[in-house]
Structures are given as C-alpha cells and as structure tokens.
C-alpha cells in the first residue's frame, strides 16, 4: 500500500466562524501540492489541523491507513508528519546547531537519554551539521537563533523539518520575507525533496511564480472551503481562482 494522507470532511469552528469547512482531499507521494487562497482562507488552519496543533470539530484525517484525528501533535510528528511554521517558531536562546540537533535527536528517537553528555552522540552532531550545510547555515551554527536575520531564521525553520526526516513535508510560506538571493536556496531544497518520489509535499505559498514552477497540483481554499483542485495551469485559469485568489471579478458577474 502506498503512503497517503487524506482529510475527510475536515472542519473546524471557532465560535460561529467556520475556519475550515468540509475539506476532503487526498495527497499522494511524489506529488507536490500547492495550497493557495487569499489571506484568511484557512490555509494555515488546515495545516494546523493536519499536523495536530488544532483538533478538528468534525471530520477525520487518515495517514498511512491510520485515523490520526485524535492523535496529539508529537505523535503525528513521530508518525512522519513534518511541519515548518509560517511564523518563525524556533528555540530562540539556543544556538542554531542546538536547534537542529534537537530535531535530529527527536528523529532518532532519543527522548529520555540522561546518563550521557550530549556531545558523546557524535552521530547526532554530524547529522545536524550536514543539514546546516544543506541550508547554507553552516557558518552560523554557534549563533543563538534569536540573533539570526529573518531569512536565516526561515532557513533554520526548514532545516528543523528536514532534520525530522518526515514522510510528509508541510511548508507554510517558506520564502515569506526572504531576500531575493536567499529564496533559491529554499526552492532548490524543495525541488530536491521532490526528486525523492516517496514523499508527500504540501506547500502554502503566495508567490504564483513559485507555485507554477514547483507544484504538480494546486488546491484552492476560499473562506475555508475547497473551491478548486487540479493541475496548475487548469486551476490558475479557472474563473473561481481568478476571483477568489487573484481578486479579478469573473466576466459572468460583471
């Protein structure tokens, strides 16, 4: 059986507001799905529901044949759901290397090892260092995360997810606020991950050129609802996307 991630009628209400409304969608390996939609469409909330930061009011999430709707965030991460956050979410006073080492440690299942000093675990350190080199942060490894530039923090955020070696990569606007010359580093990383056809990649992104170049499929959320799903060219051209996402009124309504 191949790996699948599926949401069925996924819904969450905050009081009277329905942030994600009956979203049913299946994601398959080797496919990079871009999730687009205007601000407040529920993209990040949809991510939070999948990775367990929020619990669904209704509906279910199936991952790898298991219903994970009731699982906590740590359990979902251990099952293979990796998440990079939109608002940078790091360990501010720990160094860059320590940040990544924690993720590497989590991936290796080292949770309650308290009798050995950490530096004895050379395997973890080596792995953390190689990931830092991948995201071009090798020279910043001794710096506290809080002292990094915004772009470097975004890269570290991505590095933490890569270090988890997940089966599902969830990027939430990975290039937001990055300088022009930093963007390619992250995009190349995503492209590399795509090469490995066994991973499911979800990407929330506003930049349409990024979406066009990377996505195999686009789904559109609007007011919490799934309004379009298909190949990039088709979805971008559809009137509903023109209206919902690009803010162009469809000709029929004029």
């Amino acid at each position: 059986m191949t790996l699948t991630l599926e949401t069925r009628d996924l819904t969450i209400r905050f009081g009277g507001h329905v942030a994600v409304n009956n979203v049913s969608c299946t994601f398959r390996p080797g496919e990079l799905t871009a999730i687009v939609g205007p601000n407040g469409a529920g993209k990040t909330t949809y991510f939070n529901l999948i990775s367990g930061q929020l619990r669904a009011s209704h509906g279910s999430i199936l991952f790898d044949g298991t219903d994970i709707t009731q699982h906590s965030a740590p359990l979902r991460t251990r099952a293979g759901l990796g998440r990079a956050f939109q608002l940078t979410n790091l360990f501010p006073n720990l160094t860059v290397e320590e940040n990544v080492r924690l993720a590497v440690q989590a991936a290796s299942g080292t949770h309650y090892d308290l009798l050995r000093p950490w530096m004895v675990r050379r395997d973890l350190i080596a792995r953390a260092d190689s990931i830092l080199d991948q995201v071009a942060l090798g020279s910043r490894r001794g710096v506290a995360a809080t002292a990094l530039s915004h772009g470097d923090q975004r890269k570290l955020e991505v590095a933490l997810m890569i270090a988890l070696e997940p089966k599902v990569f969830m990027f939430d606007e990975p290039t937001a606020g990055m300088s022009i010359d930093e963007v390619p580093i992250v995009l190349n990383l995503i492209a590399q991950l795509k090469q490995d056809r066994s991973k499911i990649i979800l990407l929330v992104e506003h930049k349409m050129d990024v979406v066009r170049s990377l996505a195999d499929r686009i789904i559109v959320l609007h007011n919490g609802q799934l309004v379009a799903d298909g190949p990039p060219a088709e979805v971008i051209a559809s009137p509903i996307v023109q209206e919902a996402y690009l803010g162009v009124a469809p000709k029929s309504a004029a």
Binding site: S72, A73, P74, L75, T77, N89, A106, H111, L160, L164
Partner: peptide, 8 residues
C-alpha cells in the same frame, strides 16, 4: 515547538 518536533 518541542511538541511539534515529536517530544511529548
């Protein structure tokens, strides 16, 4: 974030 890394 520690939770999101898989630490309970």
């Amino acid at each position: 974030r520690a939770e999101a890394l898989g630490f309970r």
